[in-house]
Amino acid sequence: MQDIIKAIEEASIKIKELIETGDTGKSEQENSTGDTQLKLDIASDVIIEDIFKTIPSIKAIVSEEQEEIVSLNEDGEYLIAYDPLDGSSLVDVNLSVGSIYGIYKGGFDAKSIIASVYVVFGPRVEMVVAIDDVKMYRLKKGKFEFIQNIVLEEKGKLNAPGSTQNCWAPYHKELIDDIFNDGYRLRYSGGMVPDLHQILLKGGGLFSYPGTTDRPKGKLRQLFEVFPFAYTYEKANGQAVDGFKRALEVETTHIHDTTPCFFGSNTEINRVLEVYKKNG
């Protein structure tokens, strides 16, 4: 596992340099979910794949930017699903973005995830590794140094409501409104990685990306985004659900499947489950 963490560190340093100097324009390509790929997406994907190809313990990888699973080493032990540069459209306005990695063993599905890593590229570069617990590292003078363990409080103060509001179910809108009426503060940048990172570091709250009338199965991808962060939040003593059950109990039928998702501390997630059970 440590060789994979080191590979992610190496890729992150290269992606940091790419963000600082690379072309933020659009390419002429789309990914498998129909999003126009930025040149930064493609270049970041190449950086990560090239480094992973050198790691004998990795059996296969799949990127959010590619259609198919890429086999690497027949005798490898680990499978990795990753989003090379989540929120890349925010780079040109100088907001934080990130990379997300789910490390799996045995199959690309929720029950097979054994670790997760994400990296935030902001004013500082920080890497959060979840295996048995959740540890944060910060890039200092070319090396990642351990900073702290991350543990969520039982109840938080932040609310990050994602997706298009006019497509929300009425009961979801009422839930979000009630949370704000209870004094929670809005924190939403449009970047999944920095928003979820903020909730983790500030003690708790709720990040939601529900199913909507235009996207009943949500927008966020299971293998590359939802499962890795679900694993992180659970290891940080929080929860992640699809509205009705644990996110890590959601079934995967295709590598690019999406799902509604809610991440947060226990008080907020229990509130979501209560509302969705009553109305779902």
Score class of each variant (00 low, 15 high):
E67P: 03
L95Q: 11
N166H: 15
L175T: 04
M1A: 15
D257G: 06
G203W: 11
E268Q: 14
V151L: 09
A247H: 06
I150H: 00
G191R: 00
D133A: 13
F224K: 04
A115C: 01
T54A: 12
V119Q: 01
E126W: 02
G264E: 08
P123I: 01
I48F: 08
I176L: 13
P123Q: 00
E126K: 08
Y171H: 14
Q66P: 00
G25K: 13
S116T: 06
L72E: 05
K143A: 13
F144D: 04
I61F: 11
I80Y: 12
V46M: 11
F108S: 14
I42Q: 12
E268S: 08
I47G: 10
S57T: 04
D178T: 14
L220T: 13
D45K: 07
D177I: 06
K105N: 03
E64M: 09
G203C: 10
T36F: 14
L95C: 03
I100T: 13
A169T: 06
Q2T: 08
I150D: 00
T267H: 06
A130C: 10
N94G: 06
A110G: 04
L72Q: 05
G76S: 08
N73M: 08
E174A: 12
V46I: 15
E249Q: 09
L152H: 05
N266G: 06
L152I: 15
K155M: 07
G238P: 07
E251D: 08
R221M: 15
V46Q: 15
S96E: 15
A81P: 08
G162C: 09
I15K: 04
H172F: 14
I5H: 00
E154I: 14
A43V: 08
A160K: 12
V128A: 06
E225K: 04
I58G: 02
S27G: 10
M192W: 01
E77L: 14
I80T: 08
V272C: 07
I47S: 04
D133N: 15
F121G: 00
R187L: 15
D242N: 13
A43Q: 14
R215P: 09
E145Q: 14
G34N: 08
G243F: 02
I13L: 09
V119A: 00
P210S: 02
K135C: 10
V275S: 07
V125C: 01
Q2W: 01
T54D: 03
K157C: 05
S12N: 03
V117M: 11
D75F: 12
S189K: 09
Y184S: 15
G142H: 09
D3T: 13
E9H: 03
I5W: 02
Y188E: 02
G264A: 04
K245L: 03
G107F: 07
E77G: 10
N181D: 12
E234T: 09
G203Q: 10
K278E: 13
A160Q: 12
Y209Q: 02
N166Q: 10
I51S: 03
S44M: 07
E77C: 07
E68V: 11
V97E: 09
G191H: 00
I47C: 05
G162A: 15
E249F: 07
K14H: 01
T24Q: 14
L152P: 09
I55N: 04
D195K: 12
